[in-house]
Design a protein around this nucleic acid. Structure first.
Lengths: 196, 196
DNA sequence: GTCTATAGTACGATAGAC
DNA sequence: GTCTATCGTACTATAGAC
């Protein structure tokens, strides 16, 4: 399936999955290369600055991918509250126990950067900033939806921050507890907090 | 200050700070030992199962410490909504930029286990279960407060799950963005969601 | 551009002196 | 019980053949 991709793409895809599920520091370059059938020389050819540059690329690709995904989901329903609730429920659907009894997301690619975010707050300012930018980008998608739906800018900003925050918390809780309950609970809360 | 503690306690204290700020995989045993002025032999004398057993101890100590802290704060104000809002605002107060320009918590001990939780979901079932237990314990403190305040059990359980989830999300967002805004926004939301 | 071999360092863990 | 020396392995990164 991934055999038709370029070496570079295969490396980035493997790195994305591993960094997001195992973590930045727990993932070795050798593991990434094994998984992507690439030699070590290629990695340093495409990413001269090594592991950190590779991680930066995975964060930025994930930022764009998730932004697009959220936007598409919010476009389905006109009402802001209902559409946001619906998009969170879809996240819960993507969370399941796979055959290895390990909880993960069905679409193995581009899932959540909050593990990388927490890991890099104290160790890499450039990666931290990339994660911050991703969070702000996603928040802004909710914010725009609210503004188009008639909410005042100030109110929309506050609400979208709370929504983005709840989602990140629900991802941690759902993964740790191997249950979609936290995500569902947050989705159900949306209509109560999204009010003018 | 820590010189009067036993070797074991110094090791656990240093490990707690490092695991919670840098992460489990990013923290080396040598770093823990350097920080606690302990020899490597002592670590394996007190924790024969090594790093994982040490991490388990830090998670369990943190669980107990934070449970006590939340309980004390909730006891100050009788009204559930107001007391919970207040306790989250206190968490925001504990979050600040220290002299190294690195965001951290003022009380350097026992802060948040959500980095360890995310890191160990895929790598250590025993640590994951310990983190899950901590989250459930803290949620239960909010749950009890709500029940005593007159909420129905079912409603209290749902609300306390949402509260615990929002707090974990706010910690990630606040640390990543080096701002207390997410925690404050969540605190302000409490009166709107804690309703019968 | 693609790949291999290997340097140099740090890791977790252990053995055994005292 | 306390401490040191060291093992074996894995890591990131580089050098250089092809």
């Amino acid at each position: 399936m991934e055999e038709e991709l370029t070496t570079r793409d295969r490396i980035v895809n493997a790195a994305t999955i591993l960094f997001q599920t195992k973590g930045y520091h727990a993932t070795g370059l050798n593991e990434i290369l094994r998984k992507s059938n690439a030699p070590k020389g290629s990695l340093y050819y495409y990413f001269p600055n090594g592991k950190e540059q590779l991680a930066l690329e995975t964060i930025n690709q994930t930022k764009i991918f998730i932004e697009k995904t959220i936007r598409e989901r919010l476009d389905i329903i006109q009402d802001p509250s209902e559409s946001i609730k619906n998009s969170i429920e879809e996240m819960a659907d993507n969370l399941n126990v796979d055959e290895d009894e390990k909880l993960s997301f069905r679409s193995t690619k581009k899932v959540s950067i909050n593990l990388i975010a927490m890991e890099t707050v104290t160790s890499s300012e450039s990666l931290r900033i990339a994660c911050e930018s991703a969070f702000k980008t996603w928040q802004n998608v909710y914010c725009q939806k609210l503004i188009v739906g008639g909410f005042e800018r100030k109110r929309a900003e506050e609400l979208s921050l709370v929504i983005q925050t709840m989602i990140e918390g629900a991802i941690i809780m759902s993964l740790t507890m191997k249950s979609d309950k936290p995500l569902i609970a947050v989705a159900n809360q949306i209509p109560h907090i999204v009010t003018k």
